[in-house]
Design a protein around this nucleic acid. Sequence first.
RNA 1: GCGAGAGUGGCGGAAUUGGCAUACGCGCCAGAUUUAGGAUCUGGUCCCGCAAGGGGCGGGGGUUCGAAUCCCCCCUCUCGCACCA
Length: 878
Amino acid sequence: MGAAAASRGSEASGTMSETDYKFTEIERKWQARWRELRLFEADESCPKPKWYVLCMYPYPSGVLHMGHVINYTLGDVVARYKMLRGYNVMSPMGWDSFGMPAENAAIRTGVHPHAFTEKNIAYMRAQMGGAGWGYDWRREVATSHADYYRWTQWFFLKFYEKGLAVKKTAAVNWCESCATVLANEQVKDGGCERCGTRVAQKDMSQWFFRMSAYAERLLAGHEKLRGQWPDAVLAMQEEWIGRSEGAIVFFKVAETGDPLPVFTTRPDTLWGVTFMSVAPEHPILDKLLKGSPHEKRVMPALRELRAVETSERDLAAREKAGVFTGFHVINPVNGESVPLWAANFALMSYGTGAVMSVPAHDQRDFEFARKYGLPVVPVILPPEGIDRAAMTEAYVDPGVMAASGPFSGEKNIEAMPRIIRWLEAEGRGKGAVNYRLRDWTLSRQRYWGAPIPIIYCDACGMVPVPEKDLPVVLPEDVRFTRGGNPLATSESFVKAPCPRCGRPARRETDTMDTFVDSSWYFLRYCDASNHTAPFSPERIAHWMPVDQYIGGIEHATMHLIYARFFTMVLHDLGLVDFEEPFARLFCQGMVCKTAYYCERCKWIPEDKVEGGARKGDAIEGGVCAVCRSPVRAEMTKISKTKLNIVDPDAMIAKYGADAVRLYMLSDAPPDRMQVWSEDGINGAWRTILRLWSLATAAIAQMPPPGAEIPADLDAENRVLRRKTHQLIESVTGAIEGGFHFNTAVARCNELVNLWRAKKDRVHGAVLRETLETILRILSPIVPHFAEEIWERLGRKESIFAAGWPVADRAAAAEELVAIPIQINGKLRGRVMAPPDAAAEDLERAALADEKVRKALEGKTVAKLIVVPGRLVSIAVKG
RNA sequence: GCGAGAGUGGCGGAAUUGGCAUACGCGCCAGAUUUAGGAUCUGGUCCCGCAAGGGGCGGGGGUUCGAAUCCCCCCUCUCGCACCA
């Protein structure tokens, strides 16, 4: 906890009266105690089954935000819950400490990224302790430390040896503001994932990991993950991988004979091809046009098409545009010659960069054909046929093939596989599977990342740095200025002897994408201080895979795909014996809060809203304090730009870590959006206070720990016991089935309410059992609070050594249940009966009920259903 | 456009998976207590109605003795992908 926060905390508790719960003191006490007890230090020697709980590690930005709070609170609660369930829990924490903010700060302030990062790490580590999150800090990693990135570089060399790290020239995404290239996965809505700057396409020579080679396996791995990962994440990855089946068909340029293969998912429409479209960047265009009579006419139009970046193409409402090249292609299925166009809707990055255009059966092609007056030839016909002149859109449904050579008259869907076999037999094409997934661009033109361990020698070419020379350490003699990679300014770094011939050579100055660092950090945690290898196989075998991974869904197609790919490669390298690193994944919801939008001043903080009426947690109909314009309230994700941030330290100082934790988990299931409200956290705080005074007042009337519960309890005490044991049953299910801690808290509240209503008449031993059960169930959520009362109850060991309560089935069994009686679906009465009462007895009792008799007067019973132990349902007529 | 998820009081949300709709909490109302506070305690709080009673889970239809839950159609919101050949 920060110094400022701590002082505010003691101030807050200082205002409470003597009997009040002094959370600052108590929370510090238990945080220190857990350290002494080494509660979170997990060792391989422990005989209990292992449970690896992992939260996505943070970038050390300098201060925790509410996104971290929900993520790490959930992780800590799960870790403590599993501990109570008897597992040897490993819950590590570390730092994704390479990356641009540190470098940008260096450019701005002159502070070296290393110093900046270390300071942030120290501060955030302390904040985490103050929040009550327990980690095995012996396993801490920071990806910017040479003893970590040394192995990141080592893995790069392994990938390089296997031909999976390659340097190639390709059109890559360039972010001007970040002055670096970005991977496909890091482009969102045509902009940079980090800063939002519009991304440009640039041809550059870059390092890639050949992730596309793993497309099929990444997809196949989903079978193992189904049910264990959120469906939404698997769906997003499936879309991202974008598998499609079809064929490659061997078209040729009519005039020159140049091959121009196309990928299509609709080989059944080959006979309807009326033109071909290629991407404006397609290399064949320059080859064909150079020196041709069409060059003068086509090149300017082509330049115009190329000038529009892919991203803008996406956004520009997609007006189809293109230019006829003057050339033609031969359709191999029927030898027809059709015109070759360059079109803006054809993407160089997908398939072969060429599209066979079938306007009758593809909406895009249809629009393009209509715009440029190209012919439309239907070859797949519905039963009623197609009136070519009346067509207003492409016909994309199944039908019967027409004018399609040997396949005329056949149903297109059924014919598809035979068409592909025919293409192969005739040498006119072949079956093919195409993926949208591209190779992972991992070069970054920035300083603060792991240097790519490659040296360029004029004599020997590209030479990998030998393993014994790792790590390639980031130099200190760099100038942090805008424009250009600071790493290139370091002479001591760039100049290096060629490892092969010893002559002067140049080092690669690109560093690796930070997603490379995060693709194996979960492995390093298993053996964090290993100096001779990234990890030992024994440690990995002990801890991996991660049993429960917890993080934000925004990484569905970034970190979570990269880490899976990376692990598969390590598997193929023989370094690990599993392919999927994360057995279970849970994605917590975003933390949202009301934000205010002024038409003139844009987003404004709540204290700049004047007038209006408080409606729940929002101010409706207020005006802006600055410009008097009306202000709109909106529930939205907590962010700096929307000025609705909440400072976790301030909340911990004001209400205590336990209240923050309780609030985060008691309001909604954790995978849903979490609404932050000051009233809500205050409610959580009061819940703690209420239980505190109830519990501390009751301690005096309790027998010592382990006291026997008398056999001859009266009805009231039996009820309290019954509810206690029913609580255990229902809560365990709610947690196991999706971390529904909110219902666990609700059930505990119910029991507390029941206890309070009976408190003067409850036997001391029953009271102890009830309170200890509640404490053990709540202890993962409010650990400091639970420990403190547990201790005051005379318990010597930590509550986390006490184990999860076990329900006593006999005590939980109901003696009498209220059986509802429905008449035509409406509740008409109840009868009390033992839970195992026979159907006939229930029927008799129901019909004898006075309200039921009244409702049945003058009517005929058509049907009578008795579900023993549940209800009686009567259908009547008349 | 495609894909995924969601829609229940003033609000966050429960509902043993087809069986008493609105648990628990917030807020609100009334009262108690109190050298006044974001404290505590008691009671009330889905809607209409004085009542008996009736109506209610985004809308409409269906299956069923019985539907928030299953099926069909529609509407709204959120997220992801988006000219993918």
